[in-house]
Design a protein around this nucleic acid. Sequence first.
DNA 1: GCGTTGTAGTCAATAGTGTTCACTAAATCC
DNA 2: GGATTTAGTGAACACTATTGACTACAACGC
Lengths: 225, 225
Amino acid sequence: MAGSSVSRRRLARGSLSRQVIVEAALGLLDEEGPDALTFARLGSALDASTTAVYRHFTSRDEIVVALAEELDRLSLHGYEAHEDWRESLRDLAWRAWRTASEHPAAASTAMHRTTRGIHELRAVDAVLEALHRAGLRGEDAGTSYAVYAHLVLAVCSQHATRLVSMSAEGVEGWVQVYHPTDPTAYPYAARAAAYLSAIDHTEVFRRQVELVITDLETRASRAGV
Amino acid sequence: MAGSSVSRRRLARGSLSRQVIVEAALGLLDEEGPDALTFARLGSALDASTTAVYRHFTSRDEIVVALAEELDRLSLHGYEAHEDWRESLRDLAWRAWRTASEHPAAASTAMHRTTRGIHELRAVDAVLEALHRAGLRGEDAGTSYAVYAHLVLAVCSQHATRLVSMSAEGVEGWVQVYHPTDPTAYPYAARAAAYLSAIDHTEVFRRQVELVITDLETRASRAGV
DNA sequence: GCGTTGTAGTCAATAGTGTTCACTAAATCC
DNA sequence: GGATTTAGTGAACACTATTGACTACAACGC
């Protein structure tokens, strides 16, 4: 009779682990939004006490970093280098975009952090492999890496933030808000209002990615000769 | 004798205003880092009570938005459109970069938010004016705006975040951390480690900006004919 | 089988957070 | 100069991350 379904028994010993906790954190963020990552909610999601997680992470920040690693892991899952280095860079960029779209709250929280973890390193290596295949070496490859990687990560991260803020507040008309003030003071914005609110962000990202790849192509051909 | 220098008197009536508060917030972030934006610290910085700010802002989030507007204002201060639209876009991009560099904590906190405020609108209009001058119209201009603006804002915002995290933790070697594990597993990253840790981020941004402008140039010439 | 021991999970406490609400006093209006 | 409005105040609340003492469970030696 003691310890029925109501009063929970102490959690068994091996129940928690970094991986289990990170998955719970990810699920929590997916379902309840970006503010859900607290020790209290994490504890109840794991059916554990509020502070149980501290046995596996020394701070909230460490959880965020682990979450970033998890996003890297999910993004890269099953990735293999392509014959054409351009395809490799496209693939990697769209994997980041897809992860940001599927886990916006988590991506918005964690994607901007550098983890120094193994999956981040895998991603770095994958990009550098592609650039090597393109013919870029040394310092040239280093800078080109940053041009590509910072752009992709920053844009995907911002996309995730946009997604969560969109689901929070209503998606109002944006530029139309200013019309009452004075439509002639900002004529270009006023005229473009309709187009701006109808922007296809996926298409924007596509152009940004192709932009970099094209640039790398011309650089590679210049370096290759 | 009553109310000497120790026990502060109540603050005079018109002392606080949105502008004064935002400036205090910016100063606080500049001097004490990204965690300094609290009502308590803001209150003591203004020599006011903890909750005084609530008479001018309904929530912390609203302060952040106002801070974003202030950053827009500072960025655009004194801006005028150039003859050459390319120069306009360059100018605007580097203004954002400069603001992010000068106020990293504030930029890291606020730059990723859209404000729907007057200075944000000014920035949007300035970019669209340049694109118009380039010959881009309608939907083409809308998408191109997003390609340019999202890239610049996302990258500058991430740059600000990098600056604050650099001043927090020590600037360790980055990729070298993995060497112990296995230098051959990630050969490209291992070989590029030296170059990656020596990346000139300003140069990276320069390339990213020129990238977009070049792309817009070819699009404009295609659309113009 | 059975004590010992390390440690994963728990509980209570603390300092600090955003936010609310009743209160108070300073400007302003008549 | 009295009434009214409202900007600034102070106490309170629910919630946050984090700490440190405690406890029971699994594994180990015997």
